[in-house]
Design a protein around this nucleic acid. Structure first.
Length: 687
DNA sequence: AGGCCTCGAGTTCC
DNA sequence: CTCGAGGCCT
């Protein structure tokens, strides 16, 4: 229907309730159609002004008749009121990362591993697509309606950004099908096109706001707006490239077919994709994209190859956190040259001395870099970096600055060698470096060395340890410098008056800090052990210790043999634990913390049945009644260990609906597979 | 003994 | 993210 016809129709109709409803419905479908044509197909069907007029009309209608509003209306894209914060979202199927390759050699060995894994002589078919420089997002559609959008986060837990994602106009609020799956998690990338980025920065300049360094940062910043009305003005785009959970539908047999299906559902999929055969085929795709890279309307940092056949993907499975069937072929990172002004030394919480190159500020990939780690003394020698040198700098993985190499022909005559100090730059204690270790350490320990004390205290309050909110680097630094805190136990002796004396600390914030300190008293044994900062005891080992001993006193009294009996603890770690616990000062610290009210729930390790003692369980798919973390907690309570990937060491695989590659892997290895009922029975009676 | 995998620790910038 | 090192499998 043309717009003229539309107004004629409107003018002729009396505003009866049913007509308003029909009108609203028509406007919605019309707006959705135009938006899809514009944002997904890139073929505008009407001028922007007309779109805006239709949009305004629908908005007016819906506000007059609130009963007409629906979640999938285009007007819902315009942001609502600011949220206090983003809610956490657990991903049902983790959002994994992908391994990287840089050279032809890397690609060829990837292809070889794939063929070996499949036992196949013939060329494997790979789906080739672009690797966008944006943010990974999970879109959940229930019965075809967008209900939730979440960031990748750490892969397991992300943030709920639904309100902001609704403002991305290329993302359909409702799938274009009469027969949508019950539930589908669509995965893809949110990004900002180069042109939109340029316009945004121009606007930022005009209003005197800070410009964004690059499109990726701009997209990330826009998506993290608490007020989605701002996001709505930012013209973000979306391309789908993967799938998470799916219920009430079948997985397409090929990755390329998945993307075709998405396209049919109205979900934007990038056209720059192909299916190629073997290493030669994918390298051809890479070369072609490389030639056209700058002409593309968006920024990419490489291309991605995925084994196209899903059955083959499942046969290949996963190594730790990345699929074996996919590889990101990245373009070389942007590099820049600059001067090493100095090489400083930082002291970490374990006393480790790390040389850091102080650089003349230089822009790399849109970010100004002034520091770059040199890891350790050997690394400095290996790269032969000297003070005064010209060096090539890049951002490794596009994040962390790294000195790639020196430019020898531009070495000034007066360069100075870096010398590892013999005394700690912070406390003056002697530096030791055991024969076969790469790391030099300050021998002062946290009693003498303020750097180690600060590091240790910061570790104690950190999120994964005691999780004391509001105690950051600034504050801990002040507390240590003023002598208010020397051991972690001192945190629990802080009072309002002491805190209020600090810089930038009004009574209100001081109260918040005290509240957070109070809250941290209630914790878990694993967090407490981790917080102690015993060398070689990280989060994972702390959990193993807590699970094994159940209560702190059992651990405090344990012999070397008993500590060695804990999973994944060998002689080095055992020795480190025993030597920490044999120090009377550490014993006293533990007692002081307990005395100030730090507590947790203690378990007798042999409590209840230990049906799964020593067993390793892998959970996959969706269980009918249990949530994933509930099942995991039950396994752990029964003495078992939950791991993410199936290997020969796996004792059982507990599989629910839509189990994927892990199930296939278990079948292949002949590992017993249980459904939820069988799993619960096993917990009751180990046989 | 050698190789793979996981864990720990350190790091940058905004 | 990267490196180094510990633990365990082959």
């Amino acid at each position: 229907m043309s717009r003229d016809a539309l107004f004629t129709k409107l003018g002729q109709q009396a505003p009866g309730a049913s007509d308003w409803r029909g009108r609203a419905e028509w406007l919605r479908s019309e707006l959705n159609r135009h938006a899809h044509a514009y944002y997904v197909l890139d073929q505008p069907t009407i001028p922007d002004a007309e779109y805006d007029a239709l949009f305004a009309e629908l908005q007016a209608l819906e506000s007059e008749h609130p009963e007409l509003a629906s979640a999938d209306s285009p007007t819902q894209r315009v942001g609502g009121t600011p949220l206090p914060e983003f809610r956490q979202v657990q991903h049902d199927v983790p959002m994994l990362s992908i391994n990287n390759g840089f050279s032809e050699e890397d690609i060829e060995s990837f292809d070889r591993r794939v063929r070996e894994g499949l036992g196949s002589d013939s060329a494997v078919e790979y789906a080739c697509e672009l690797k966008f420089d944006g943010l990974a997002i999970n879109l959940r559609y229930e019965r075809g309606v967008l209900v939730q959008a979440a960031t990748r986060g750490d892969g397991t837990t992300g943030e709920d950004v639904t309100a902001n994602i609704r403002t991305v106009r290329s993302i359909p609020l409702r799938l274009q099908t009469n027969d949508p799956p019950l539930l589908i998690d669509v995965r893809g990338e949110v990004l900002m096109f180069k042109a939109d980025f340029a316009r945004l920065n121009q606007r930022q300049r005009e209003v005197g706001h800070k410009e964004f360094a690059n499109p990726r940062n701009a997209a990330a910043g826009s998506l993290r707006q608490l007020d989605s009305r701002i996001t709505a003005q930012r013209h973000l785009r979306f391309f789908a490239y993967g799938i998470g959970r799916l219920e009430g539908g079948d997985f397409p047999p090929r990755h390329s077919a998945l993307l075709d299906w998405y396209r049919a559902l109205g979900i934007p999929v990038c056209d720059e994709r192909a299916v190629a055969r073997g290493a030669a085929g994918v390298l051809g795709f890479f070369a072609d994209i490389g030639r056209r890279r700058t002409a593309l309307p968006y920024e990419i940092d490489g291309v991605v190859y995925k084994v196209d056949r899903v059955a083959q993907q499942q046969a290949l499975g996963f190594v730790s956190r990345a699929p074996r069937f996919a590889l990101a072929h990245k373009f070389p990172a942007e590099e820049a040259t600059t001067t090493v002004l100095d090489i400083g030394v930082q002291v970490g919480r374990t006393g480790a001395l790390t040389p850091v190159a102080r650089l003349a500020p230089v822009s790399v990939g849109g970010v100004t870099v002034t520091n770059a780690t040199l890891h350790n003394e050997d690394e400095v020698r290996r790269k032969d970096v000297r003070i005064g040198d010209n060096v090539i700098v890049r951002r490794a993985g596009d994040v962390i600055p790294e000195v790639v190499a020196v430019v020898p022909e531009r070495r000034p005559p007066d360069v100075r060698q870096f010398e590892m100090p013999v005394a700690c730059p912070v406390c003056g204690s002697p530096i030791t470096r055991p024969e076969e270790e790469a790391v030099a350490r300050c021998s002062g320990g946290w009693i003498k060395c303020a750097a180690q004390r600060k590091g240790g205290l910061l570790h104690f309050v950190s999120r994964r340890a005691m999780d004391i909110e509001g105690l950051g680097e600034q504050l801990v630094e002040q507390l240590v410098d003023r002598g208010l805190v020397t051991t972690p136990a001192d945190f629990y002796k802080l009072g309002l008056v002491m805190l209020s004396e600090l810089d930038r600390m009004a009574e209100k914030s001081a109260q918040n800090v005290l509240k957070a300190i109070e809250k941290s008293k209630s914790t878990t044994l694993a967090r407490f052990i981790y917080a102690l900062g015993i060398r070689h005891v990280g989060e994972s080992t702390a959990k193993a210790l807590a699970r094994h001993f159940g209560m702190l006193d059992a651990m405090l009294e344990a012999s070397e043999a008993e500590v060695l009996a804990v999973d994944d603890i060998g002689p080095v770690v055992a020795h480190s634990i025993l030597s920490f616990l044999s120090d009377p000062l550490n014993r006293e610290l533990i007692e002081q913390l307990r005395a100030s009210g730090v507590h947790w729930e203690e378990n007798v390790p042999e409590r209840g049945n230990q049906a799964l003692a020593g067993k390793t369980i892998v959970l996959t798919g969706t269980l009918p009644t249990l949530k994933r973390d509930e099942a995991a907690a039950m396994v752990e309570a029964a003495g078992g260990k939950v791991t993410g990937s199936v290997s020969k060491k796996t004792s059982y695989v507990v599989a629910g609906d839509d189990a994927g590659s892990k199930l296939a892997k278990a079948q292949e290895l002949g590992i017993p597979i249980l459904d939820e009922t069988e799993f619960l029975t096993l917990l009751e009676s180990p046989e």
